[in-house]
Computed example of a mutant assay.
Amino acid sequence: MSDLSDFDALIGTWTTTATHPQMDATVAGRTTFEWLDGGKFLIQRSHNEHELFPDAIAVIGPPEDGDGLLMEYFDSRGVRRTYVIALEDGVLRVWRDHPTFAQRYSATLADDEFRGLWQAAETPGDWRDDLAVTYRRVLETPS
């Protein structure tokens, strides 16, 4: 079974700002990362303040068979995708190889803010920048 302990760095709530090459706007949103009870799977939920940016949920954990980690992604458009995910030396990487729509994402994590970039390739190896997202940690106020 693969180790998810490095993903503790993501736990909490993050405000997001996203840009896409096909839009002139910056889209605000919110993402949370939380452990499923038992700590064997990580749940990511995201909400965006623009109808063209889907809300989504993802579950991160080990595959049924084999090594590594997978991210099962579902969004409000009805899209479902399976990605490979890794967090090593503070760099979060997500990717899927598909002959007509491959995707990859990379971000170097920091405690309170980080920026990640999605890239897409509709032809193998022909990568183009896609969605850029900046995450800012929401600090919890003491009760």
Rank of each mutant, 00 (worst) to 15 (best):
V59R: 08
V59C: 10
I60D: 10
G61P: 08
G61K: 10
G61W: 11
G61A: 09
G61Q: 12
G61E: 07
P62R: 08
P62Y: 02
P62Q: 08
P62W: 00
P62A: 05
P63K: 04
P63L: 02
P63Q: 04
P63I: 04
E64I: 03
D65F: 02
D65A: 09
D65N: 10
D65Y: 04
D65R: 13
G66A: 15
G66N: 04
G66D: 08
G66P: 06
D67W: 11
D67Y: 04
D67P: 01
G68N: 08
L69R: 12
L70D: 07
L70A: 04
L70P: 11
L70N: 02
M71E: 00
M71R: 01
M71K: 06
Y73E: 06
Y73D: 01
Y73I: 06
F74R: 05
F74P: 00
F74V: 14
D75H: 12
D75Y: 15
S76K: 14
S76V: 12
S76I: 13
S76E: 03
R77S: 13
R77G: 09
G78C: 12
G78Y: 06
G78H: 01
G78E: 14
G78V: 15
V79I: 07
R80P: 10
R80W: 15
R80H: 07
R81I: 08
R81K: 12
T82R: 15
T82H: 09
T82L: 15
T82A: 03
Y83S: 01
Y83R: 12
Y83P: 02
Y83E: 03
V84S: 13
V84Q: 15
V84R: 11
V84K: 11
I85P: 02
I85N: 01
I85G: 11
I85F: 08
A86E: 05
A86R: 11
A86S: 11
L87F: 11
L87N: 08
L87E: 02
L87Y: 07
L87S: 13
E88R: 14
E88Y: 09
D89I: 10
D89K: 05
D89M: 14
G90C: 14
G90S: 11
G90L: 15
G90K: 11
V91E: 04
V91P: 05
V91Y: 13
L92Y: 03
L92V: 00
L92W: 03
R93P: 00
R93K: 06
R93W: 00
V94W: 00
V94G: 10
V94T: 04
V94C: 01
V94F: 05
W95Y: 10
W95M: 15
R96G: 00
D97L: 02
D97V: 05
D97M: 09
D97A: 08
D97I: 00
H98K: 13
H98D: 06
H98W: 13
P99E: 04
P99M: 14
P99Q: 07
P99V: 03
P99L: 08
P99D: 03
T100Q: 07
T100K: 03
T100F: 07
T100D: 12
F101K: 00
F101V: 13
F101E: 05
F101Q: 11
F101H: 05
F101N: 13
F101G: 13
A102M: 13
A102W: 06
A102R: 09
